[in-house]
Amino acid sequence: MTGRRFDAMVIGGGLVGSAIAWGLRREGLSVALLDEGDAAFRASRGNFGLVWVQSKGLGAPWYQRWTRQSAESWPGLADDLAKQNGLSLGLSQPGGLHLCLSDREMNKRAERLEQMKREAGNYGFEYRMLDAREARDLLPGLGPAVVGASFTPYDGHVSPLALLRSRHQGFTALGGVYLPNVKITGIATAPRNFLLETNLGTIQAERAVLAAGLGNAKLAPHFGLKAPVRPQRGQVLVTERTRAALPMPTTTIRQTGEGSIMLGDSVEEVGFDTRQSQPVMAEIAHRAALCFPWIGRLNVVRAWSALRVMSPDGLPIYD
């Protein structure tokens, strides 16, 4: 395959890239979706699966607003995708809790959410600080170590893997060209004419979308852009399936549609290193067992570490 030409090419086949590629294809463009191979970093595969509002956009009201709007458009999106692919994304938005294990954590949390409410202005921001008893009513089985929680009704969760599959499936079904195992060896840009030299031959398009996650940091300068993103490691533990139900997700614990309980979410600045570290895994497990002693009795059947795509200030980059 040499010298293929498209209306648009999207570099990166994760959740962002495949969604954009799908959208462009739906608008009738010929689209190539360029992806890495099986062993890529792929933040999409490591994602925890929260559709989360209550922690997003402190000090950045615009980001808080977008997050809310984005969460609100999720049910429509999930319905659409289910209709197209017959695949449930397991979306559930019952609201969510952030659990606090000390009075200090509780006070800090209250201050933070009060600030978000202030910054939301007329857009509004509904939240409640719950004492231990109120939190226990919402989440039976909370441990005695939990002193309280914050609640917002906007939060929820979804299966990121089902979403990824649905996107790839949908894009291919619409006639998009999915090109995995691509290695870019050269880039040449001109107005409305972007050309990539790759191991699959030359790929050319009028429009290019950079959705390569951490790869964007290196790609962007070739296109006259800046994307100073860095890797931030997060580790996740997953338990065996259980019938005991967790009615709503918390910031670090959620139950999947299959019944597994996912435990997260750690933050480590260790560069491009996806190894696991036992102390961090133990800390995640420790905190989870404190929050829900019954989770302590479940087996961890899977665990992983993956890299978040983080901007310098943790906010979206708009150039």
Partner: peptide, 8 residues
């Protein structure tokens, strides 16, 4: 029988 149940 099926998924595990744990008492809370």
């Amino acid at each position: 029988h099926g998924a595990r149940d744990v008492p809370r």
